[in-house]
Amino acid sequence: VTVDIKGMEYHFDNPEEAKKFAERMAKELGGELKVENGTLKVE
Rank of each mutant, 00 (worst) to 15 (best):
G38H: 06
E28W: 13
V3M: 02
L40N: 04
D4F: 15
V1A: 08
K41R: 13
A18D: 00
K34T: 11
K41A: 05
N37C: 12
V3S: 01
A18F: 03
G38I: 04
E36C: 13
R24W: 13
G31E: 06
Y10A: 01
R24H: 11
A22Y: 05
K27D: 08
V42C: 07
D4G: 07
N14L: 05
E36A: 10
E32Y: 15
Y10P: 01
E9C: 15
M8Y: 12
Y10D: 00
I5N: 01
A22T: 02
E28R: 10
K41S: 07
A22S: 02
E23H: 05
G31L: 14
H11S: 06
K20Y: 08
E36R: 07
N14T: 12
H11K: 10
K27Q: 12
K41T: 10
G31H: 06
K34N: 07
E23G: 01
K27A: 12
K19N: 07
D13C: 14
K6L: 15
K20E: 12
E9N: 09
P15A: 13
T2E: 02
E23V: 08
M8R: 14
A26D: 02
M25I: 08
D4R: 15
A18R: 01
K27V: 10
E32R: 13
E43T: 14
E23D: 08
K41E: 04
D13A: 11
E23I: 11
K6F: 15
R24M: 12
I5G: 01
E16G: 06
I5F: 07
E23L: 11
E17N: 05
V42F: 05
A22Q: 03
P15G: 07
K6S: 13
K34S: 09
H11F: 12
E16I: 09
E23M: 11
R24Y: 13
A26S: 06
F12A: 01
D13F: 07
P15I: 14
D13P: 09
A26N: 04
K20R: 13
E32N: 13
K6V: 10
K41V: 12
R24K: 12
V1S: 07
E32S: 14
P15N: 07
Y10R: 02
V35C: 15
M8H: 12
N14S: 12
E28L: 13
M25S: 03
V42P: 04
L40D: 03
A18G: 07
A18E: 00
V1F: 14
L40A: 04
V3W: 01
Y10V: 03
E28H: 10
K41F: 12
E32H: 14
K6T: 08
Y10T: 01
D4M: 15
P15T: 08
L40E: 03
G30M: 08
K27R: 12
A18M: 02
A26M: 08
K20V: 10
T2G: 02
V42T: 04
G30T: 04
V42L: 10
A22H: 01
V1R: 06
G30H: 10
V35P: 04
E17C: 12
D4I: 15
M25L: 07
L40M: 09
E16W: 11
L29P: 02
K34A: 06
R24C: 15
F12Q: 00
L33W: 10
A22R: 05
D4A: 14
A22I: 08
K27G: 07
T39I: 15
K41P: 03
V35Q: 09
E43D: 11
P15S: 09
F12M: 01
K20I: 12
V42R: 02
N14M: 03
K19E: 06
P15W: 15
L33I: 14
R24Q: 12
E9W: 13
L40P: 03
